[in-house]
Write a protein that binds this DNA or RNA. Structure first.
Lengths: 116, 116
DNA sequence: TTATCATATCAGTATGTAGTGATACGAAAT
DNA sequence: ATTTCGTATCACTACATACTGATATGATAA
């Protein structure tokens, strides 16, 4: 029973999910300036080590990043320049049309019950 | 207490979230061929009416789509051609580099416990 | 070998959010 | 005025998944 046939749209949604999380997106943006070890990513993003590692696995499973073992380090890099292009395009969209993003929440949050 | 300052990255993640769900993505793709009423979207996507309506609200809050009232119908369209461009770019990425997407699951699902 | 370091894995918890069903709203048709 | 139709809203439930803390793994250094 091979998991199930996935439509192209389904796969595309999955691809976008790689970009749709703050932590993963931070990682991808850090990698835009070139390859980094896990430690460097942790440092730059301020995320916990296990969290970064978890997300990196996700990203490399999806082939958005590529891992290269170097001794006891692992160096990660974007798998394709177009990953960066996608980020740039999103930035443009945000600037020009999608300003409403700021307050976009499907189900409005309670005001004043900040949970921090 | 103004909700909280959001970083550009945070907003970008939110933007991607618009594309990162199968239902929303189906809606966006349906709209690539031109404006559609809610009913037409329901028909083309096979989603329930309330579900479509919920997602459309989300998408228009985020300015990814634009609503135009027409009598008792509402016609929706993509807010910018670059929304389509983003979809195309994602397709290219999938074809060329991100084939691993197919089995990408951060936490592996149980095999054989299909929930349909 | 043993210790140390870089990274990976995993269980558990908490939170976000997608989908449903019922209902409300407003516009047109009868 | 009443009904019908198209769409929007809402509470609720179920599920997906992000994060943590502890531990495992594997490579180098001592």
């Amino acid at each position: 029973m091979p998991t199930r046939v996935k439509s192209a749209t389904e796969l595309k949604a999955k691809l976008f999910r790689g970009f749709a999380d703050l932590s993963r997106l931070s990682i991808l943006e850090a990698l835009r300036n070139g390859p980094l070890t896990v430690g460097a990513i942790v440092e730059q993003t301020g995320l916990s080590q296990s969290n970064v590692s978890n997300h990196l696995r996700c990203l490399s499973d999806c082939d958005l990043v590529i891992a290269e073992a170097q001794g006891r380090y692992t160096r990660y890099q974007l798998s394709d320049p177009r990953v960066g292009t996608l980020l740039t395009l999103a930035e443009e969209l945000m600037r020009d049309v999608a300003r409403g993003i700021y307050d976009c929440t499907r189900y409005e949050e309670e005001e004043g019950t900040a949970h921090e």
